[in-house]
Write a protein that binds this DNA or RNA. Structure first.
Lengths: 123, 123
DNA sequence: GAAACAGGTTACAACATTGTTACAAAAGAA
DNA sequence: TTCTTTTGTAACAATGTTGTAACCTGTTTC
């Protein structure tokens, strides 16, 4: 009784200390994913496997350049997209999802399926 | 050539007008899901099929009562949770996911798996 | 010479969101 | 009688986020 109680205390403490750094990483990722337009950006990029240009992303998610640039910067900082600039005139910049981000595709796809379904049925 | 171009224009126009109301619903849902702690709340409630009390949810997602209450209110307003109050002393309130919200479970689960994996590997 | 293009950045004002604190209600325990 | 409990709500100051407008690069077209 007392032992198992102690055990669970110890375990939860261990869990907490073990997760202290992991938890912050988890939170950080959740905060990242919860930023405005973030899911949309990842979704539209996942829908099309080709590299996508800034203006194309902006058009598809329908947001201001400022916000799109901010989101793409955050994604790049987290290693979820790679940015490639070409010295054309005018400039061309392509964004590509990294392998890690592509691993998120199934979740995103089924989440958007759910969202679209729900939006449909509420008409 | 010209015809197919016209067709695609017509189609995109039809898509746009058709989606004008649906799009707002989609956006609304995405905004809802992107609110702080929202994914966490849905996740912890999905992990445990039993009704969950306010304090339990609050403890598990580690947020202020104000925020948790706000999120649960928003979820209820969107028909994703049901709130049941019991006239005990002190008050007991249970929250349950609706069938619609449960349909989101697979997406959430794989998304969190991805998040946990990524948080792990970045230690 | 001026405009236009893509892909941004910067500054800033307006707006949205957060946590904190105080409060409430109802009844049983000390 | 006062304390405790659960489940919130209201007000508010602090903080975070957004879009807009202006600007930038560098080359080609009018």
């Amino acid at each position: 009784m007392i032992l198992s109680h102690l055990m669970s205390q110890v375990q939860s403490q261990r869990m907490q200390s073990m997760c202290e750094s992991a938890r912050s990483h988890v939170d950080e990722l959740l905060v990242l994913l919860s930023k405005s337009k973030m899911l949309s950006i990842l979704y539209v990029m996942n829908c099309d496997p080709d590299p996508m240009r800034f203006s194309e992303i902006k058009k598809r998610v329908d947001s201001s350049s400022t916000t799109v640039a901010r989101r793409l910067g955050e994604l790049e900082a987290h290693g979820l997209v790679t940015r490639t600039a070409y010295a054309t005139v005018p400039a061309t910049v392509e964004y590509t999802l990294t392998r890690d981000a592509i691993a998120l595709q199934p979740s995103l796809e089924s989440m958007f399926e759910w969202v679209l379904n729900r939006a449909d049925s509420s008409l």
